[in-house]
């Protein structure tokens, strides 16, 4: 892992803390799911944390973030309160959507976090529209749109890439290639093979592939993309190579891949890798790491306590917000 020359201590601490928060938040979510306190679908981001943290950290407040159903990591990296996320996972009134959205549908308008979308590829056209609005109003805003390798075979992906390029819209298409669309290996489902970024050539969108397990590499690629997008020259495509350490969802027994493959990828654990760099470069000390761990644990425990103690939604809210 290279170290970008501009990295400062506060940033290093920040990235490490955020990745660790996502990891511990989701480990806790998985336990709570097994206990029956979280229901429905729960898709964990564990293993992919460097992508959300590395890319979202480069954005300004006015930029938009939009993503798929594996959205806890993006929401946390965008600064959403872990308490309201956990309460939403519990289906409580204090959740980010008052218990009406659930794990796959987190939103925070105050942070321009435009949501998690649970139909594969469905967020891509919306990302194009957010960018269209920015361009229409001549605002300096970029849309950072996350999607997975499974979405690349959807028609909505191709429609969105095409229109964003035709209209030269400010979108960063951030592909999180974790090699599996649910249980299907990417080479069995995508004609172009596992290096998907070549698909952007067809739409004349500049594209790069980056190590998605390296938070600094993701940050650097996103910064480069932002520079281009902000000049008004249209979208950029980034493919971040990654791996999810857990199943597609909590319901997934992961029968379709070898455990040796997981073992290999665990050596690339983005948090462990960054920890080594941060220690080596003396951005943090062991004591500070312990302090961060303790702080993150306390945050997660407070979030769980908040969710546990919060009331269920009132039945009379059922019909609220169907219409404006």
């Amino acid at each position: 892992m290279k170290v970008a020359p501009k990295l400062e201590k506060t940033q290093a601490v920040d990235y490490y803390s955020q990745m660790l928060l996502i990891r511990r938040f989701e480990e806790a979510s998985a336990r709570l799911y097994m206990q029956g306190k979280i229901k429905g679908f729960l898709h964990l981001y564990i293993g992919e944390e460097a992508i959300a943290v590395g890319s979202i950290s480069t954005l300004s407040e006015q930029d938009y973030v939009i993503t798929h159903y594996r959205d806890h990591g993006h929401a946390l990296a965008r600064g959403m309160d872990p308490k309201v996320i956990m309460a939403e996972l519990f289906g409580k009134a204090t959740g980010s959507s008052g218990g009406k959205g659930g794990s796959m549908h987190l939103f925070d308008a105050s942070r321009n976090f435009m949501g998690g979308y649970a139909i594969v590829g469905g967020q891509l056209p919306i990302a194009v529209g957010l960018a269209l609005a920015a361009k229409y109003r001549r605002e300096d805003r970029t849309v950072l749109c996350f999607f997975g390798d499974g979405a690349v075979n959807e028609g909505e992906f191709h429609e969105s890439m095409n229109l964003a390029s035709v209209w030269q819209l400010p979108v960063i298409f951030m592909l999180e290639n974790n090699l599996y669309g649910m249980g299907s290996y990417v080479e069995r489902t995508h004609a172009g093979g596992k290096d998907i970024y070549h698909v952007a050539d067809a739409y004349k969108i500049p594209a790069a592939q980056v190590d998605g397990m390296d938070v600094l590499a993701v940050r650097e690629a996103t910064e480069e993309a932002l520079k281009r997008v902000r000049t008004g020259s249209g979208p950029v495509f980034i493919e971040a190579m990654t791996y999810r350490f857990r199943g597609h969802s909590m319901a997934d027994p992961v029968a379709y891949r070898e455990s040796s493959e997981l073992d290999q990828w665990r050596k690339e654990d983005p948090i462990e890798k960054f920890k080594v760099v941060a220690l080596r470069e003396e951005f943090v000390t062991d004591d500070e790491l312990q302090g961060i761990e303790a702080g993150v644990q306390a945050t997660v425990e407070a979030a769980i306590r908040f969710a546990e103690e919060s009331p269920e939604p009132e039945l009379d809210t059922l019909h609220d917000n169907v219409y404006a």
């Binding site: 009406k100 549908h105 939103f107 949501g115 609220d320 917000n321 404006a324």
Partner: peptide
């Protein structure tokens, strides 16, 4: 609108 509880 419903899923975001009125945020959008």
């Amino acid at each position: 609108r419903y899923m975001s509880n009125g945020q959008f």
